[in-house]
Write a protein that binds this DNA or RNA. Structure first.
Lengths: 210, 210
DNA sequence: TGCAAATCACCCATTACGGGTGAACACGCC
DNA sequence: GGCGTGTTCACCCGTAATGGGTGATTTGCA
């Protein structure tokens, strides 16, 4: 299907200077080829399927249909294509929405040109290129709060509650009595100063206790 | 406190050849200094506090106390120190446990020496260095399944259920009737072929529908 | 030896849950 | 124009789960 061995790159970016800059950079790197460049998602969604790109560089802050909104549509149109996000913003919500919608990498626009080319290569090799600060935020999102007021057992039980299991089922799976589970839950509620499952789960997640 | 401007690195690694190799590499790079090298976590936990390291390179597959187990203890001992995981394994469970326990980065042992030094630098600058394949796995963990059988509304309601909220509360927050929520839940259960909250949440999470 | 953690017990009233059946209305698609 | 899908709401049923009070025992680590 591919017409040669070059990595086929498409660019979706509204700023002409930046778009042309990327196109020039990538087009002049051996092994890479620009097969499409668009100023909007609407335009790209109509024509990009014909470009058969391996990688799409996607700006998230576009006028009209934003990059994150277009992501699922691009993925549906080109399921095998890797999509790299390019942005000036480093907002957590935006990052996690983009990654949840199928982005294969996330780069900030201060990324030096040679690193962008390296990222395209990396994503083709099964990697997940991210700018340093983005990577740190992603890693942080996994990190638990080490100064939890909950004991080991309480944390374990709250995790089970957060999966929707009933106290009875939790008791059975942990080989303890239902009364013991109730007792732990009462202690959890006191420590977190809440009066319901939902509030306990929210408080614990907000504070990264679970 | 710091005796000079070098980045202070400690190494915990049982294989002597590898340990010495890293020590030699880092010690001979200007701007870096090896302040400790240990063959086990037990040994490291006793003495490492005196080294006052900026970064610790930590092997996860150690005899005795494993790297992941030692992570919380090291973090408690040296809260300001960045810990970089070094491993041959790329198991998801190990990666997410390590990141959840406070690791600042995750490198595989096939990482070339100059990249290890770069990773130490990157972590000092607020980055989160990861090997390419690890980064892809981390990113994948965020990705939703685009071919969900659930509708938009059903997904929304299942997400609410997964936070532990009651149907009544969900109805209030979405400004719809309790009966409507019940109706959606019945449809969700049918689609996922389950008969309880817990099973629905599990099925949806396993398939990345939520 | 003492304190925290984990275990179990019995009390109470209220609410939530799972399932069946049916129906109205809006929207897009052929 | 009609058909399917998605969203909304209604009324039925019985069982199970929840939140809270009070108190007691045992185990393990410091």
């Amino acid at each position: 299907m591919k017409r040669d061995l070059d990595i086929r790159v498409a660019i979706i970016e509204d700023d002409e200077t930046i778009r042309e800059g990327y196109a020039f950079l990538i087009g002049n790197t051996s092994g890479y080829k620009v097969v499409g460049a668009y100023r909007s998602c609407e335009e790209a969604l109509k024509k990009i399927a014909n470009d058969d790109p391996d990688v799409i560089l996607l700006d998230v802050e576009l006028p009209g249909v934003s990059g994150v909104e277009a992501l699922p549509k691009l993925k549906k149109l080109l399921p095998e294509t890797h999509i790299l996000i390019l942005t000036v913003y480093e907002q957590e919500m935006l990052i996690f929405r983009a990654l949840g919608n199928g982005a294969a990498g996330y780069l900030t626009k201060n990324t030096p040109p040679e690193k962008i080319v390296a990222a395209i290569h990396e994503v083709m090799e099964g990697g997940g290129p991210m700018s340093a600060h983005i990577a740190r935020m992603v890693i942080s999102s996994f990190k638990r709060n080490e100064s939890t007021p909950l004991t080991r057992r309480e944390t374990e039980i709250l995790e089970q509650i957060a999966t929707g299991k009933s106290r009875k089922r939790i008791a059975e799976e942990l080989f303890i009595d239902l009364e013991t589970v109730k007792s732990h839950i009462k202690n959890i509620y006191h420590k977190l100063d809440v009066h319901s499952k939902a509030d306990a789960i929210k408080a614990a997640k907000d504070n990264k206790f679970i």
